[in-house]
Design a protein around this nucleic acid. Sequence first.
DNA 1: ATGTCC
Length: 480
Amino acid sequence: MIDKLRRIDETRLEVPLDYKKGMRVPGIIYVDSLLEKELELQAVDQVANVATLPGIVNCSTAMPDIHNGYGFPIGGVAAFDLKEGIISPGGVGYDINCGVRLLRSNLRKDEVIPRLKDLVDVLYREVPSGVGSKGKVRLGPDDEKRILIKGAVWALENNMGDPSDTERTESGGHIEGADPSLISGKAYERGRSQQGTLGSGNHFLEVQYVDEIYDEQAANALGLFTNQVTVMIHTGSRGFGHQVCTDFLEVMERAAAKYGIELYDRELACAPFHSSEAQDYLAAMRAAANYAWANRQCIMHWTREAFMKVFSSSPRALGMSLVYDVAHNIAKIEEHMIKGERRKLVVHRKGATRAFPPGHSELPVIYRHLGQPVLIPGDMGRASFVLLGTEKAMQETFGSTCHGAGRVLSRHQAIKMARGRKIWRELEDRGIIVRSAGRETLAEEMSDAYKDISAVVDVVHKAGLSKKVARLRPMGVVKG
DNA sequence: ATGTCC
């Protein structure tokens, strides 16, 4: 029960070893007393369940945007030893490499407001969205395989961006070790028509403006200034990644039994890191991650084209360069210091953002002195945030921080609460123009359905897991 | 999140 939790300090709650039988390490949930009230019992239970898995290192961690997920909580971070540990699709999630990218511009808010409706219309037309939406990219079988290996670099080779984009993308926009031969026919089929599509649910493309800066020097280094217009793109690997996850959950359920791993919840299906099943999943997951990076790159390209049309100017003159692109649903092999010893671990981040500190060799040279840019999308009515990674995150959370607001209402509850309201109208009254493909998406995604993003970000800032740089406010939203 | 049940 929740009263078995122990408060460590203002921002941390411990799930003690005796919370549940079988826990190998404790759990740590980053919440203050306010967000603690919104903790779901089931999500806390999931933190404890993850702590029972073989080879887990330090503790089972969750961020302040924690909520129920498949097996592992969303907002969870779990790192496993490569010898004794496991790898689990539930620790990554169905939307492999769901992530966020942020584009800057030279435009000011007051220059865009008179053209905002037009801009949102053009963006809605240029970027396919909605459940099962089909892209305008026509792929042959070989193209799709190239995407799985090259990720965003494939898009550059097809004249949709330049090397400064992939330089500013986590993992350079393509992760090594993807194996297209491990992808099912079903996944290929679903992926063929969906490259370059936004999807639905909480995925979005948003025109925003910078309304508050917390760290002038850092904002300047990232190319951000007050009242500047930015664009945030939040999407993932669409039906392709979903199918990869589905395919491998089946493989992993059999593998867990085969290798004698006791599962406290069958949704924790996993396999020992060095098993062929785990290695195959990793190679397939990487292919899906690359699919997602290509997806965000295509969408960003069309975003630049849309701005070019509406403002009759070149993207270069508009200053539309990529600030950064983060993955928040992925497993990566990384080196971390554990009790004074440098160790290679497989870090699962499921609804958690990497937040590497200044000086880390995996950061692009232009940002190495700053720390990794962290992009946190909020709901469509409130705000989004830019932060930077820290040394404290490296020490406490395997270089990780939160990923978003986190739901407080289920989709069903949200639809019920929105009955009789016009969500688009409520947003328009607040100066936010919204266009959506799905009939019920706006209800599911209204502000009331989410935790307060500012409260979530304040916890990770106060805990030192990342530091606030800027707050972005929505102006125009394209929803799936 | 997801051709929201083959």
